[in-house]
Design a protein around this nucleic acid. Structure first.
Length: 496
RNA sequence: CGCGGGGUAGAGGAGUGGUACCUCGGCGGUCUCAUAAGCCGCAGGUCGUGGGUUCGAUCCCCACCCCCGCAACCA
């Protein structure tokens, strides 16, 4: 069997603030998919990174008396440590301020756009509201005044380079329609197709005057202009592979999955494919779109002061529990909610179900190891319930229903618990030694599969279960070595 | 305005033209291997509103009400 390759990316986080629990979710979802494919034996490349240019960062840095570079260096360290604390298995971390990795590819792409005559200079007329410190749409004006600041905006005209999105829009739409770029879930695809119907096929601004945005990559051969976010940030997916001439690119491009938040789908579904068409490069296969997390039903925002820090959560509950909550409780592609109360309820799955099962079965097995003698397990012996769990689980992971895949695993844990109960496993050593051996073996096999399926989600826990059973995570080894079961410390101590 | 999704037990979610289901929570019972965990059972819903199609609708059709998303550089 030839090895498949699997290239997955997260969106790159905008470096204007500390890591957010929503970004933790995106990292985790991507991590599960990456680990799942590695376990299947695929050749995986998992990229994440930071978007570090732009006006907001420039302003933030000024506020803190730092250069933009100093500022983003600090922030990106925090994002890196978040990935580390969450146990994210990314293979690389690209930063758009990386002059060696990223800049040359952006320049390169820009020049190609110019060669294809897909870039042109134009004057951009817009309303600028001093109160908002931003351009505002004509639609958002009421009686010619900004709704928020009740002031007439200034009419500003600005020179920008534009990218001929309109030239490619029809083709991109078709690709989305035919699922050649597959947008998951379906309703997001409909939203995008609908966007093409409206007047949104106009060309997009790809640069800003230097005075307007000073922190960014220069437009080649015009140092009065800086490259604007899309031409800069989206390019990370290829610069992160070392550009279109590198070995990694050759092996991994096109991306199998771009994982993005619903807020930036349109850029990934519209502008990015159009850029690739212009560059004559292959297109990503799938775009998975996740939702946002509310905090007790309320949108998290700095002004409300209800932002949940992923670091605090990890410190309080541990990495594995945080992974479990976010992946289980937040539907992969809808919005979800975080609450402390709910977190504690969910934690019960880990301590009372998973941890308890492993402990009770291994305790009985260890105590009666002379009756059990030398036992081995084999994947050929799997029961109907294990078989069903596996097929449901795989189906759900591959359709980006990660929360449901976790649910599948916990159903299997229930089955095991009932098996202990119904067989009265603890009485069997005295009553029926053969039955005891057989039931224990079945149970251990079921637990081994639980750990196996859990591996992409809770890698450390999975590891601890295997070590309690005395086997490796590699299924091929299972029938080779006899088990050596040792009662572990509780996997997830009660919270209280 | 438009396009899309949705309104099902206290909460969160499945579901089907014909006994309405799962998880969490609540209540009661039970075992004792285990982290006072587990297992069993109970309570609780006129399946948004009003019409229609049908022998029969939560499920199909129509109208309406409400919520949410997209439309807009909020992870």
């Amino acid at each position: 069997m030839s090895k498949n390759k699997f290239y997955i990316t997260t969106s790159i986080a905008y470096a204007n603030a500390e890591p957010h629990i929503g970004y933790a979710l995106e990292l985790l979802q991507a991590d599960v998919l990456a680990r799942y494919h590695r376990q299947k034996g695929d050749d995986v490349f998992f990229l994440t990174g930071m978007d570090e240019h732009g006006k907001k960062i420039q302003q933030k840095a000024e506020l803190e008396n730092k250069t933009p570079k100093e500022f983003v260096d600090e922030i990106s360290e925090k994002f890196k440590s978040l990935a580390k604390e969450l146990g994210i298995s990314n293979d690389s971390f690209i930063r758009t301020s990386d002059e060696k990795m990223h800049y040359p590819i952006v320049f390169d792409f820009w020049k190609k756009f110019v060669e294809k005559e897909d870039i042109y200079k134009n004057t951009y007329e817009a309303f600028y509201c001093v109160g908002c410190e931003a351009f505002i749409n004509e639609k958002d004006l009421k009686d010619g005044e900004c709704i928020i600041h009740k002031k007439a905006p200034e009419q500003v005209s600005e020179e920008n380079y534009f990218f001929k999105f309109s030239k490619y829009a029809e083709r991109v739409k078709e690709l989305i329609q035919k699922d050649e770029i597959k947008i998951v879930p379906e309703h997001r695809k409909k939203e995008m197709l609908n966007l093409f119907e409206s007047e949104k096929v106009s060309d997009v601004s790809f640069s800003r005057p230097k005075e307007s945005v000073g922190w960014g990559i220069n437009v080649p051969s015009d140092d009065t202009q800086k490259i604007y976010v899309w031409a800069d940030a989206l390019t990370n997916y290829i610069s992160g592979l070392g550009g279109p001439t590198g070995k990694l690119y050759e092996k991994f491009w096109p991306a199998d999955v771009h994982l993005v938040g619903k807020d930036i789908l349109r850029f990934h579904a519209m502008i990015w494919p159009a850029m690739l068409l212009s560059l004559e490069l292959p297109l990503p296969k799938n775009i998975y779109v996740h939702g946002f997390i509310t905090h007790e039903g309320v949108k998290m925002s700095k002004s409300l002061g209800n932002v949940v820090s992923p670091f605090d959560l990890i410190e309080k509950y541990g990495k594995e529990a945080v992974r479990y909550y976010l992946l289980r409780e937040i539907p992969s592609y809808q919005d979800g909610d975080f609450s402390d109360e709910r977190f504690k309820e969910r934690y019960g799955d880990l301590s009372n179900k998973l941890g308890n099962l492993v402990l009770r079965v291994s305790a009985i097995a260890e105590k009666n190891k002379d009756i059990l003698g030398e036992i081995k397990i084999s994947e050929n012996d799997i029961s109907e319930s294990i078989r069903n769990t596996i097929s449901e689980y795989e189906k759900n992971i591959e359709s980006f229903h990660l929360n449901v895949a976790l649910e599948n695993i916990f159903k299997l844990i229930d089955v095991s618990d009932k098996m202990v109960e119904e067989s009265k496993l603890w009485e069997l050593p005295k009553k029926d030694k053969e039955e005891f051996k057989k039931t224990t073996k079945d149970l251990i096999l079921s637990i081994a599969y639980t750990a196996y399926l859990l591996l992409p989600f809770l890698p450390d826990t999975s590891e601890r279960i295997f070590s309690a059973l005395g086997i490796s995570k590699d299924k091929k080894d299972w029938s080779e070595k006899p088990l050596s079961i040792k009662k572990p410390e509780p996997l997830f101590p009660r919270l209280d």
